[in-house]
Design a protein around this nucleic acid. Sequence first.
RNA 1: GGAGAGUUGGCAGAGCGGUCGAUUGCGGCAGUCUUGAAAACUGUUGAGGUGUUAAAGCCUCCUGGGGUUCGAAUCCCUAACUCUCCGCCA
Length: 424
Amino acid sequence: MIQLAYIRENKQDVIARLAVKNMDATHDIEEIYTLDIEKRRIQTELEMLLAEQNALAKQIGELFKSGKKAEAEDLRNRSTAIKETCKSLEEKQTELEEQIKAILIRLPNLPSPQVPAGKTAEDNEVFLLDEHFMPKLDDAALPHWELATKYDIIDFELGNKIAGAGFPVYKGMGAKLQRALINFFLDNAGRAGYTEVQPPILINEDSGFGTGQLPDKEGQMYHVGLDNLYLIPTAEVPVTNIFRDTIVKAEDLPIKCTAYTPCFRREAGSYGAHVRGLNRLHQFDKVEIVQIAHPDHSYEILNDMRTYVTGLLKLLELPYRVLKLCGGDMSFASALTYDMEVWSGAQKRWLEVSSVSNFESFQANRLKLRYREGNAKPVLAHTLNGSALALPRIVAALLENNQEKDGIRIPAVLIPYTGFDKIK
RNA sequence: GGAGAGUUGGCAGAGCGGUCGAUUGCGGCAGUCUUGAAAACUGUUGAGGUGUUAAAGCCUCCUGGGGUUCGAAUCCCUAACUCUCCGCCA
């Protein structure tokens, strides 16, 4: 949620920056601005009356005590009269506040000034390309879904029977590879200073609101109707919400957490070749990294996180590229996002395996997540997160890029985790 | 699932419907003492809004929502959550 005080002072800047996300917010911003002025006018008026009422109530109490009944009655009538006015002003104020919030919560975050203009994924800026580990495959190379069947490590049909499309069953070495990757990612995050947490994978509405999934984006999440809970689309939601309604000390920043969780996405309307195999699933595993940062350092930290993720890709011996997302391709809550994509040798496509974002104070404002410098007033913190990493597409790329005549080669760093060096 | 109890400031824990934003303890911060630290003592210590050069002042907040009243942390209704006992269970 954009800070109301910022809109108050910087109308034109807000409109200009939302235009980078291809949104004409002129009307919304003007409306907020006008409603806010009116709201504050009413608030002032109301508060003066409330002050008078408080004073009267106090006097009445004293008059009753000293037995001056008639005078007390007199004041009581006056107070009753004021009460009516207060009530209507209060209603008006609440209504205005609701109107302001209704607009405010559906406005996306302001993109950082360095976000490139653009409408679609085509307009993203290639920030970095590392083809060092580009595989040399011949035309007989198999896509990962065929390799999965050939080596009997992932069964899509079986998952279909149990839950539906997009819920694969990993078997044997396939399952072990999943576990190996999760442990490998968690261990690395731990070494990089992230504290491991295991959060709930069901969240309530407040949590969904805090990180920006609710309202409006509930269609992307599975909903447990009976208990009104949602399955998490990413660990970002429960982990960031650990810090909802908290004031942390400035010297404790940055706070770094990592979590492995399964993630659930409805992906309604997705179909076709691009969602085959592991490319797009309803349930998948991911290790997430989250940081709560001081506003002065959040962009350095974003760079650190990006470098950390590309470091993992190098360790896994995967060719990758880093995209700086354009305004049109960025998510609702993000101020700046880098996407990491790995090369999938047989599909001959780039697959997104991580997305690292700085949300600045957008989530913090919804979460009421603040830090305090000494005895100063609390200030909204910045939140950041990134996948480190999402498993399925990593697996897809590993299978395809490392296919050899006698099996699939496991990268050296993973062998201690898998216990085998080849899937046969 | 059944029965009961509760939800107050960072934590613990008081609070006859009328100077209660709230007693007290702990913790935190500052000071005295000390070579330094500890102990002891003293002071200070919630959030949001409004306002101001800065303050003062004023308003709101005692889980959320609604109600009664001139006046509510205190009474009533309601929701959520927590705890205890019983049942069930990985």
